[in-house]
Design a binder for these strands. Structure first.
Lengths: 115, 115
DNA sequence: GCTAATAAGTCTGTATTACAGACTTAAAGG
DNA sequence: CCTTTAAGTCTGTAATACAGACTTATTAGC
């Protein structure tokens, strides 16, 4: 994933797929919803490779999903844009679906958007 | 993408991401919603490589998103399962978001779920 | 100020995956 | 038969992914 090349598809789903059709992007947004802000906040919980995280954060900025606030003290912060915040209904429905269709009988999912 | 390894994450988003966090999967589901049924129906409109399509269709079956109805006459049909049909709210919200955030002023998206 | 720790990356080498495009196989039509 | 068509598979090459080590800048403690 070198640089984000926005889709010119006339279809909203086609364009959205270019952004959201990536496992890491979905999980990074989830972590941001849950309070993650720093580079290191994503590394361990997601088990993502550092280079992969770098490239995802970069392309998510290009896609207008987040901004990188340069370090005031020592650490940079990654912050969701309004555009990314507007994704909550998508994630909500995704969670509903996941809960309903990806868990076995009696297997209990974590709450969303809590843990 | 060799074989579908379902996620054991306790988080519904984490599990959903394993299935939906792939551009082709999203687009294939869209095409199915729009009426595509045969292997060839996906090739040209999506511009997907044949081997890539084969692997996606296989893993989508494993994930319970579609069934392959073996050829009655000559051609096999791929059919959405109820589980995949239950994804409509996700796609709906994705379309709303895409329309709102991925189109420039005056640029007009296609209707969903029409064309 | 010097040393150690930490944060945010980058780099390297290797293993996977992607893709274009040609090839294969089986069925159907004429 | 001979030709099409549908649904793949195969091949070679290019792009990505990943683990894990390394780098650089900044702060914290002494």
């Amino acid at each position: 994933m070198k640089t984000y090349q926005p889709s010119r598809s006339p279809c909203p789903i086609g364009r959205a797929a270019r952004v959201l059709g990536d496992r890491w992007v979905i999980l990074i947004i989830r972590e941001l919803y849950l309070g993650a802000q720093r580079f290191e906040d994503f590394i361990e919980p997601l088990g993502i490779n550092r280079a992969a995280l770098t490239s995802r954060l970069k392309m998510m900025q290009e896609a207008g999903l987040l901004t990188r606030e340069p370090p005031e003290g020592k650490r940079a912060r990654y912050v969701l844009t309004d555009s990314a915040k507007a994704l909550t209904p998508v994630f909500q429905e995704m969670a509903v679906w996941g809960e309903e269709h990806l868990f076995a009988e009696g297997e209990k999912p974590t709450e969303w958007p809590s843990a």
